[in-house]
Amino acid sequence: MNSTASKFSLERIALLLKRDISENWKSIFYFFLASYIIVLLWFCLTAYVSRYDEGLTVATSPFGFFCYMTILFMSFCISAVLCFSASRIFKPMSGRGKRIEFLMLPATHAEKFVSRVVYSVFGTAFVLFVVFLVAELTRILIGAVFSVNTWGVMEMGHVVDGVMMTPNMKFDGVFWLLSLISFVWTHSLYILGGTYFTKHPFRKTLILMVLFNSLLSVCFLAFRMGGQGNSLSITTMSMVVYDGVYTWIYYTIYSIFAVVNWWLAYRLFSRSQVMERNLF
């Protein structure tokens, strides 16, 4: 079977994906195994902690606090894994030999870009989904075999649903939506960083992002806090950030910039050359 279609071809994307998976199946498997062990341990720990607090499944209880903290922590870890994976979007272009091989593969820029997005973004998300699914099944199995109460992530979500995080912010649908927009923006920066930097893309993007975000936040707060003095306590800051219309304007701008980052990443990739970029 030869791929000869001259326009954008899904068949060629599938061939590119097959190539990526065949060359990296061991890393994918180890990632799956490590994630599965971590998630299962989390579930087991949750089941263990819940024994001291059964029946009191409210956020103010020690178990509720545990759920609240671990959900936040796991969300952070998942975001970090997805961002790390995004920063490795053009790993096949690290090193001159690999770069030549990837750039010279007979497929269009769009096909190569899409295949790498599918592999490093959706692929990682899919593996994590399967990890949770398998861990959930294992949890149910353990519960049935040993007749113990084990807590799944969905049930833990119910425990913390509606908990006040800050005076103006609840652990609810809006919180998750805003978190998702923040994540999409951050993730798009790692996609851009991963396209630009050939060596240590995660580390370099992280450093740049911290610097850029700090600058942006200071500018934003300086603008919003114009008439409120200099009392930058966490409570005041959260009130400023999470209040009504401004919040949505703020997050809409983030969403637009996320799209711009993706566009820039594609443009950078399609203009890649065999030589390394001079900056950084």
Binding site: M1, N2, S3, R12, L15, R19, P106, A107
Partner: peptide
């Protein structure tokens, strides 16, 4: 098997 398919 993985690479030859790109070359007609």
């Amino acid at each position: 098997r993985l690479y030859s398919v790109f070359y007609p």
